[in-house]
Design a protein around this nucleic acid. Structure first.
Length: 418
DNA sequence: TCTGGGGTCCTAGGACCC
DNA sequence: TCTGGGGTCCTAGGACCC
């Protein structure tokens, strides 16, 4: 059996941890630049605030309804997530951390245990230990565990735990569960299925395999089997990433080469940092720029270029150079740039980077970067930078409603007045 | 005025090889 | 009119996830 454990309204719940005055109040968390709503407490959902909605459209509603608005605080969410996952891993050695707020757990050899009971205990322990409410769904496949989790969340009488472990139970649930709520069915496939009169999971599982494969590829076919209770997916190991992207929107449009260059160089050094973290070097680097697509009245230009590097590297200095060269080739003045990004691809393990006779990555960079990483780890991100980066911290993301990093900064620890 | 930032996997079609 | 039978690699685009 698999369990899918999911933190309820995770970011909103994190914001509430150190603000008990917000219990029962509507909370939303915004994306970078305070742009879109990316998390909502139940109370905020009830007000009709939609996921992904641009925040400025809701300014009035936020004020009228006294919605508590937060900029995203990933230092906090990441730390709380680690604590939750750590607790969950005491229930079984087989755990896959699927996202910041979800884990799949596999329960092999638990035939004589009550999963219902285990789920209740998990909820109780995680709530007590971290303050984060969770929902737990158990089922014989991952896709069904996802479904069970949604049922646990939706039906209050389940107490946040739902188990699908019999054929009859499965049949009963798939006859009711609608297809748009299924993990792996996105808006496109939903529309197609809906047009054919497919409404429930049961309808979907009755489609012929060949048709599903033709229309939805092997991914869709696997999903169909999963929903029938046939196990086709197992827990996945943490794999090193195949691509690393650092992209940001700017608070306004910029038409200044030096300014854009600084951003692109900074993104490249962050890519390099992330590469070193997983012991990879990259062989290909891509730089792209975007003008503001929400303003069709302004001239649009969305160039991108991909460079094959002469040798694999994870040196921030070298990647900064390559990124700058790439930028030079695509940058044109006369446009208002709203977003830029650097993507690195085609990794090789740092340990077996191919040496070349004439054209080597500077061997001293390895040691230098190790020291830079050490400093930045101890002193905070981007304390040690390249001179070509923004040393005066001119560039700031809009984060007007940022909560303290309660659990990871001594200086921001909660104050109790008594 | 203001609109996030990451990822993965799969397929089709073109270009090339013998 | 008829025109082999395999392959691989790459890219763009589509679909999905959080």
């Amino acid at each position: 059996m698999f369990a899918l454990v999911d933190c309820n309204n995770f970011y909103a719940s994190c914001e509430r941890l150190f603000r008990p005055d917000l219990v029962g109040k509507p909370i939303v968390v915004l994306s970078n630049n305070d742009g879109c709503v990316i998390a909502r407490s139940q109370e905020a959902k009830d007000l009709g605030i939609k996921m992904g909605a641009p925040a400025f459209l809701f300014d009035k509603l936020f004020k009228d309804q006294k919605v508590h608005v937060f900029s995203s605080n990933y230092a906090l969410y990441g730390d709380i997530s680690a604590r939750v996952m750590n607790m969950l891993s005491s229930y079984t050695p087989d755990i896959e951390v699927y996202s910041i707020d979800e884990s799949f757990l596999r329960f092999d050899g638990f035939d004589y245990f009550s999963l219902q009971e285990i789920g209740r205990k998990m909820r109780q322990q995680v709530t007590q230990g971290t303050g984060i409410p969770i929902s737990v769904g158990f089922a014989p496949t991952k896709a069904l565990a996802k479904m069970a989790n949604k049922i646990a969340k939706k039906r209050t009488e389940t107490g946040g735990v739902f188990v699908i472990d019999t054929r009859e139970g499965l049949e009963k649930e798939i006859a009711k569960f609608t297809i748009d709520d299924v993990w792996g069915i996105g808006p496109r496939h939903f529309k197609m299925l809906q047009a054919m009169g497919i409404r429930t999971v049961q309808d979907f599982t009755r489609l012929p395999d060949a048709w599903v494969k033709k229309q939805m590829s092997v991914v869709g076919l696997r999903l169909k089997h999963e929903l029938q209770g046939i196990r086709t997916l197992d827990l996945e190991d943490v794999k090193p990433k195949q691509n690393i992207a650092v992209t940001r929107s700017f608070n306004e449009n910029y038409d200044d080469y030096e300014w854009v260059k600084e951003r692109v160089i900074t993104f490249a050094t962050i890519c390099a940092e992330r590469l070193r973290k997983q012991d990879s070097c990259c062989n290909v680097l891509q730089v792209f720029l975007l003008t503001n697509s929400f303003r069709p009245d302004q001239p649009q230009y969305t160039p991108a270029t991909t460079v094959k590097l002469p040798y694999p590297t994870n040196s921030g200095i070298e990647l900064a150079h390559f990124a700058e060269d790439a930028l030079k080739r695509i940058y044109k003045s006369g446009f208002g740039y709203k977003k830029a990004g650097v993507v690195v691809m085609e990794f090789t393990p740092a340990a077996d980077a191919q040496l070349m006779i004439f054209n080597n990555s500077n061997p001293k960079h390895g040691n230098l970067m190790a020291v830079v990483d050490k400093f930045n780890h101890a002193l905070g991100q981007q304390k040690v930078k390249l001179a070509s980066q923004d040393l005066d911290r001119v560039w700031k993301m809009k984060r007007e409603r940022l909560s303290p990093r309660y659990t990871t900064r001594m200086s921001e620890i909660v104050t109790i007045k008594s």
